[in-house]
């Protein structure tokens, strides 16, 4: 059988997905949120920050399916526009820690000795503080706002990736294919990044998905505490925070952004599980 394809899995993809409902559901949820985020101006029935004093605290109706908040803003529109911010938080909040952690973990695991000791002691120091306390202090120093949140994530979040990758590299570098690469006269960076890293990556790619959930919730928590996204921008965490005073009178203001957070997190989780299965295929 002659088959010329770079990706051996390609021909089995459609059947693969159809046999794994978790993957389909997870990908579906994520795709849904990405689409409404992209088309927010078209999909959203109202301007998310437009206040309407006459329509304050209205329960869900045909005009306002998710109701309105204490400023008379349409909750549905705010949830839709919020997807833009929250997806951005999940993406950037994971991307930089992942990149930094992967490089540090690979280098520390491969070279060992002093480099490894230095990086692992830094990890220990960061681990010694509660995660949120560290995040909050960094953001307070830098000043509230999303960019401070991203910087704080990059400074603190890389340690999980570094530890995961380092442990993998330590195992892989003693295996024959790594020794074989060395005996073929390959440079260290080639062995590290072309051979060891692709083999070490599977675990962290799965972790990216569960980490995205944590980052999303963290972003919401930081915004809730008033250090992240500033009002009146629509962001799910901010919406929940602002609505808490009205929870007894208007449940819908908290429920819908809360549901959005939970659903997106659920989608990431399903996708993470499915990716774990998928990446295990080669092994």
């Amino acid at each position: 059988m002659i088959r010329r394809s770079a990706l051996s899995l390609a021909p089995t993809w459609p059947r693969y997905i159809s046999r794994r409902p978790m993957l389909a559901v997870g990908a579906g949820i994520l795709a849904f949120f990405v689409l409404i985020a992209i088309f927010a101006p078209i999909v959203a029935p109202f301007d998310p920050i437009l206040q309407d004093p006459k329509a304050r605290l209205q329960p869900p109706s045909f005009a306002h399916p998710f109701g309105t908040d204490n400023f008379g803003r349409d909750v549905l529109s705010r949830v839709i526009w919020g997807a833009r911010i929250d997806l951005q938080i999940a993406l950037i909040g994971v991307l930089f820690p992942f990149l930094i952690g992967t490089v540090i973990g690979t280098v520390a695991g491969f070279f060992g000795k002093t480099i490894d000791t230095v990086f692992m002691r830094i990890v220990d120091i960061i681990l010694a503080f509660p995660f949120l306390v560290l995040m909050l202090s960094i953001i307070t120093i830098l000043g509230p706002g999303l960019s401070s949140f991203y910087i704080a994530m990059a400074l603190v979040g890389w340690i999980s990736y570094a530890r995961l990758i380092r442990a993998q590299i330590l195992v892989l570098k003693t295996q024959d294919f790594s020794v074989a690469a060395e005996s073929l006269g390959f440079s260290r960076s080639r062995i590290m990044f072309r051979h060891l890293l692709p083999n070490a990556l599977a675990g962290s790619l799965v972790f990216v998905m569960s980490d995205a959930v944590l980052v999303l919730l963290n972003g919401a928590a930081i915004s809730y505490l008033g250090l992240g996204v500033q009002p009146p921008t629509a962001e799910w965490g901010v919406m929940v925070a602002e609505a808490q005073g009205f929870i007894t009178q208007a449940w819908w203001i908290t429920l819908f952004p809360g549901l959005a957070i939970v659903t997106l997190a659920f989608g990431f989780s399903l996708l993470g599980d499915a990716m774990g299965d998928l990446l295990g295929v080669h092994e």
């Binding site: 024959d176 690469a181 006269g185 692709p198 080669h282």
Partner: peptide, 29 residues
């Protein structure tokens, strides 16, 4: 001087096509 290992599964990179793995030493050198 080159080496052939005991476990052919472990001495090949599982995530690279075999053609690339045979070509790699030629490229590197």
């Amino acid at each position: 001087v080159q080496m052939i290992f005991q476990d052919p599964g472990a001495s090949l990179d599982a995530r690279m096509t075999v053609g690339k793995q045979v070509a790699e030493p030629l490229v590197v050198h």
